[in-house]
Design a protein around this nucleic acid. Structure first.
Lengths: 210, 210
DNA sequence: TAAAAATGTGAGCAATCGCTCGCGTTTTAG
DNA sequence: CTAAAACGCGAGCGATTGCTCACATTTTTA
């Protein structure tokens, strides 16, 4: 299943080492980015020799791929929890958006290497998940506004996701805005944009959006 | 004035070389980013020996700084043309926003290294210009909506600039949306957001924003 | 307990990068 | 025309990086 992991660790000791290495890689990648991070520093921070690192990971990119699997699994769990149609049907659009944005902000805070790696590099599974999210948002838009032009929903969803991704960067240097402030602004922008979509289609926006 | 440029080129031949080196640096920086770009490849693409490169630039970072001066000067010209109060007063908010966003999209298309360098690295003059832009947008917001809470205008302006910066990334890989499509979406989002600001303050939004 | 398997280690190799330096060529000054 | 100044060149130096390998240590197996 994972050809980039050289030896599957059989002893508890080495399994913990793999975990520590991935934690260390996440930190160093977050601080320096993938290219600037050195495998020696990742091993050193994990308290592991460089030789041990290469017993478990075939090369530097294998660390990235393994981290990707971990992050994508975590993010997929968040997405399935918040984009589930059954759950979302019980909430107002405003409440639903707020919960989703806050969940995503929390994910980014607890997964420091997410943006520097998966927003900039070419990472296959991350892009597949991104496409899933856009489609799920498109379905959600269709459920909330069935009268909106269906052929535009995919693009509208892409804009919505872009708003979240783009504005969430205001929490990074050099702006360093508080995640709560940024999340609130994102919700405001999303609600305003969706309301504008209704108006552009000649429909009255639902009162909860105003 | 520029201590990082070793010899000020006195002959036309070498002045052209400096120009070619900066053009080449812009291309390579845009393709690979600053860290991954190599001075040898920049010199090679410019058709200049590596020795000549270091006659005019003290080190690799000097290329970045010189490029920064060029880009910041160009962007400042665009900004002063479009954020000038006298000019902007004659346009509707919608038309003004559309012109500004299109001008910025055109700037990014003609300055390929702008985002990969100045949105990610710590570049002093670029950040100063960014702050100027946010303040100018804040003044513009105040002019268009004097009744809006003044103490929020700086933050609202930061959100507006963040919307433009964040969504403009949809023109990059992996999305590759057409700049015209993205610009139109940005205008829609900006207008919707500004209208929402009026509503949140208990004011009726100007009809041109609807 | 002893052999085998798994794990741990870090000096150092090959490749790459930023940058220098010695020297040849072209342009300018007088 | 001649000397000086400016410019051009690229082999290669020192530093860094991803990664290997020969060998030591620990755990498992029988």
């Amino acid at each position: 299943m994972d050809e980039r992991r050289r030896r599957t660790p059989r002893q508890v000791r080495s399994q913990e080492k793999v975990t520590r290495l991935l934690d260390s890689a996440a930190q160093v990648f977050a601080e320096l980015g993938y290219e600037q991070a050195t495998t020696n520093s990742i091993a050193a921070r994990a308290g592991v020799s460089i030789g041990s690192l290469y017993q478990f990971f075939s090369d530097k990119e294998a660390l990235l791929v393994a981290l990707e699997e971990r992050y994508v699994a975590d993010l997929r769990a968040v997405v399935q929890q918040h984009l589930d149609p059954a759950r979302s049907a019980q909430l107002t659009t405003a409440a639903l958006l707020r919960q989703m944005v806050l969940a995503f902000a929390h994910f980014e805070m607890t997964h420091a290497a997410f943006r520097p790696l998966f927003m900039r590099e070419r990472v296959a599974a991350a892009h597949a998940l991104h496409a899933e999210i856009v489609s799920a948002v498109a379905r959600l838009l269709h459920a909330r506004g069935p009268a909106l032009p269906a052929h535009e929903q995919q693009q509208n969803a892409l804009i919505c996701v872009g708003i979240v991704k783009g504005l969430m960067q205001l929490t990074d240097p050099p702006h360093h805005l508080a995640p709560e402030v940024v999340s609130e602004a994102i919700v405001t922008v999303l609600l305003a944009y969706i309301a504008a979509l209704f108006r552009r289609a000649g429909l009255p926006p639902p009162p909860e959006l105003a």
